[in-house]
Design a protein around this nucleic acid. Sequence first.
DNA 1: CGATCTGTTGATGCTCATCAAATCCAGTGG
DNA 2: CCACTGGATTTGATGAGCATCAACAGATCG
Lengths: 245, 245
Amino acid sequence: MLRNLIKKLENFQPCTSEEVKALESYITPVRILKKSEDLIQESDKPYEVNILLEGWATRYKITDAGKYQALSFLIPGDACDVHITLIDRMDHSICAVIPSKFTSIPQHKIEEMYVSHPRLARAFFWSMLVDESTLREWIVNIASRQAHQRMGHLFCELLVRSRAAGLTADHGFIMPLTQQQVGEAMGITPVHTSRVISKLRQEGLITWENKFLKIHDWNRMKEFSDFDANYLHLEKADPNLTQDI
Amino acid sequence: MLRNLIKKLENFQPCTSEEVKALESYITPVRILKKSEDLIQESDKPYEVNILLEGWATRYKITDAGKYQALSFLIPGDACDVHITLIDRMDHSICAVIPSKFTSIPQHKIEEMYVSHPRLARAFFWSMLVDESTLREWIVNIASRQAHQRMGHLFCELLVRSRAAGLTADHGFIMPLTQQQVGEAMGITPVHTSRVISKLRQEGLITWENKFLKIHDWNRMKEFSDFDANYLHLEKADPNLTQDI
DNA sequence: CGATCTGTTGATGCTCATCAAATCCAGTGG
DNA sequence: CCACTGGATTTGATGAGCATCAACAGATCG
């Protein structure tokens, strides 16, 4: 059940079977969310560290002007910040983009983990650093690249992360987002998103059908999108994750 | 010497004199950086948690296309991620924008802190969550607000953070950045930055002279900029920090 | 006190938003 | 099984926001 999470953490360091067991003992019963249902909302008090088991989710905020802004996408194995319970109110919401299954680790189990399994705790800290690094790269992406590159960059990221979570091994992966949703992440309108994607298709860089996205020429796509996976901190992971295999 | 850092951490929870002493015992000798000198560069291995004592700094990245993108500004009292030493290579650089003084806490002292002063460690974790939240708000700011609001929002943030670090108490604060530098953060050119700022001045929202920025009408500025300080997580701090005092 | 950095202003063009309408598709109910 | 419905995507036309190029004024500094 925690397959993808463990696969992901093992990109930082191997997990012993004992650690896996400990992790399994921490988690709460599965919570199932329908499409478009919020897991937690801005201004809610967080009591546990959520983990996505199946499905896809998005972190988002809505501005006063009513604009919806996606902040990151969660894929199976992604966990929220281990220290999140320190804050009183969420500063953003998390929503299931398709029917999804979540579990969580309650606050007191986290503290138990610090003490009894510091190695495991470190793996979660690493994961948190990667999340933070990813936010920085999104700022770079949105602030300083044009829409075409920006979109390509997002697709590269999602491919590498899907590989790192053991969801795919080649250049295609399941991406159950609508064009509008990827546009909301990159700060462009659905209309422009459509134009950008049709351009990527014309260039022969991707195909995207039936929720399945395939990157045709990884090296050309990386160059086109100015993508460098350094920010995902997979230094200790299988180099194939970020290469043209 | 750690005055601003302690002031900042106390917005989360009070520090005992014993904790202050412990913190002081952890830190390394002061390192002085000249203007435009890098504290650490992308791809360097981090060995310690840096803390800015005096001056200003910026986190930044440079894209393949040669575009410089600022990712956040550091003011006195700001610390880098407590877990940063877990990663092998920095994903961004940090540069002094004016002559600045830094100190740091070495990796092994951090681990010592986890054990001997968990309360202190928690305050650092909180600070890290705020940094992450701030990155998310920057994404919202850059992706979904226009340049005028974006700039106003940045100024609001810097004022509240300056107050939270005990650097100012009213509506003015020292901001030693050039227009180009704030533009680099907001993803706009120096030319457009100049136009945006002259508009903010015309509207009577700010004055900015001799590195001193003053916000005239806090409530009007907040509304203009769609600024809501929730993301800085000052829930337990003095409410005046975010109000029109 | 020249040289360089910083800020200002004007003119022009590109990127992307907005408005509008048509097509395609999945899901629903009869 | 088919007609209906609402969402998702596509395409076209127009305009706003910001980039870019250029020139100049003011500030800063060795």
